[in-house]
Design a protein around this nucleic acid. Structure first.
Lengths: 143, 143
DNA sequence: GTGGCTGCAAATCATTTGCATATAC
DNA sequence: GTATATGCAAATGATTTGCAGCCAC
């Protein structure tokens, strides 16, 4: 059940603790880019002693080890993503969903603008998702 | 002095007020992507009655009219930019500077991932800027 | 003249900090 | 056994809200 997360932590020489395993599992099973509150309140059900501070601390250490990444696309809070390969994000201004975008970025791992060394790239796209467009069209046609 | 900003506001049918003119002028003269506090405390010197709320309100209406844009690259606060053409941003993890990057993005004004309509694109690059690299090199050589 | 704007104070929300206890290794 | 992690409560910092008076049009 948790072996893969145990291995992941050990490979990075991070101490294996229950909150860390649960957070990894949650992110691995929910690719919805949850914020801290969503992670916290979901895990709190099974582990009533869990504290928000621990969620913050755990995410921070996972981030430092590049196991998870935080994204700022929402503007008001950090959202978390278990690190797959490089990908970008789309925020739907109608329904609030944050989706993964697999467009490649030609500017990763190099320098930009005559010499600034790039270690990290994040691409944010904002607009109206396919689903919400469909709904709008339906409403117009039927209304 | 302020004519261009007056015109800009009138063209967008936004009421011309002194805080709005000052904020536009400030952003036009400081392409450093300031946060609200920097804008506020700088303008407060000349206009002691200015309030933070007004800075927030003004930036919001300018943003709605696409005259300015807010960027979330810093992660902890919004930073503002007077809207030039589409460009991206680079954050130096060493000195904190936020620089404009003029790399073109091939994905503007279209749809992504099979149909999500894109209205806005922001590209964030993080790493070490040219200047900080130079400093590092110097220290190693001399130390 | 009036609706929208300004500025103040208080509220809210995400995140951080300090510290005592508990636990991984 | 010890360094590190957890969890609580309080603090901080950015932003929002409610509201009274003011000003652009």
């Amino acid at each position: 059940m948790y072996e893969k997360y145990v291995k992941l932590l050990k490979d990075h020489a991070i101490k294996v603790t229950s909150p860390r395993l649960e957070i990894l599992k949650f992110l691995d099973e929910h690719h919805t880019h949850p914020n801290v509150e969503e992670i916290y309140s979901s895990l709190k059900k099974k582990h009533p002693s869990l504290s928000r501070t621990t969620v913050y601390n755990s995410l921070e250490i996972l981030k430092k080890n590049r196991i998870v990444q935080s994204i700022t696309i929402s503007g008001s809070e950090l959202r978390y993503d278990i690190q797959g390969g490089l990908h970008h994000h789309f925020l739907c201004n109608r329904c609030g969903a944050i989706l993964d975008i697999s467009i490649a970025c030609p500017n990763m791992d190099r320098t930009v603008e005559g010499g600034h060394r790039v270690d990290e790239v994040q691409g944010y796209f904002k607009g109206i998702c396919k689903n919400c467009q469909k709904k709008e069209k339906g409403w117009r046609t039927n209304g």
